[in-house]
Design a protein around this nucleic acid. Structure first.
Lengths: 118, 118
DNA sequence: CCATAATACCTCGTGGTTCGATGTATGGCA
DNA sequence: TGCCATACATCGAACCACGAGGTATTATGG
């Protein structure tokens, strides 16, 4: 975790990004997040529980999330919500993603110098 | 290494995608690709030689690239260009990336609840 | 000339993430 | 009673990107 000369693993942290984004919009619990991601992306992205729960635990440990037990319909659930720190982290990840996506998009669609493609 | 039920590692394969894209535009050699990616993305993405060369070798092994030695300015280089198979692979990766980026973009900018896709 | 940098190639071990499998427990329903 | 959906959790395997390190050749410049 020392200083990085180049860019860190570009792509990693997408599950984390999506989870933070969902939780910023509304309080949710793990099992719900798994399905929400699947539903809202039309199954383009499908993270399993084995991905979501560890991320939730890690984020809570870092102070980016806070949790509270709550029983709904005689179902015990652990609801998570973002802290100010989590909000800040979301902003960072969000910007990093935007830069990355823009860079790739530009490479995919951009015709380098005015050279003819053939 | 069997068939995958869910989505494969969403993010992986970005270096491969960028390399294929560059080579489709023009014949290039490894060392040049490293710098081209860095330059054309304003250093947002910076893959090292340790990433590029193994990808080139793997793609050639799969028949997605073909190579030829060429000496330019008394510099011996190995130029790579995409085969029809590589072109097909680029199309696949490109589409996968587009879907992914669109899905994430929608989640980041979307309102409270995911609305109908449009 | 010799040292240094830049070019150009290559491989290996490491590390961080995601994945799928698996495990536990409870509630609804036929 | 049996089964499925809900809801939590963890673990090892797989995978990919990364940086460090290694070789060789060609300019540069003191």
């Amino acid at each position: 975790m020392a200083a990085r000369e180049t860019n860190p693993n570009f792509m990693n942290g997408v599950p984390e990004l999506l989870i933070l984004r969902l939780l910023q919009q509304e309080e949710m619990y793990g099992y719900e997040i798994v399905q929400a991601i699947r539903n809202r992306t039309a199954a383009v992205i499908a993270v399993g529980e084995g991905v979501v729960y560890p991320v939730l635990h890690a984020l809570e440990r870092e102070g980016a999330l806070r949790s509270r037990r709550k029983t709904v319909n005689s179902r015990s659930r652990i609801y998570y919500s973002v802290t100010p720190r989590g909000s800040h982290r979301l902003a960072d990840l969000s910007e990093a993603w935007s830069n990355l996506a823009a860079a790739i998009q530009k490479m995919l669609t951009g015709g380098q110098h005015g050279e003819a493609i053939q």
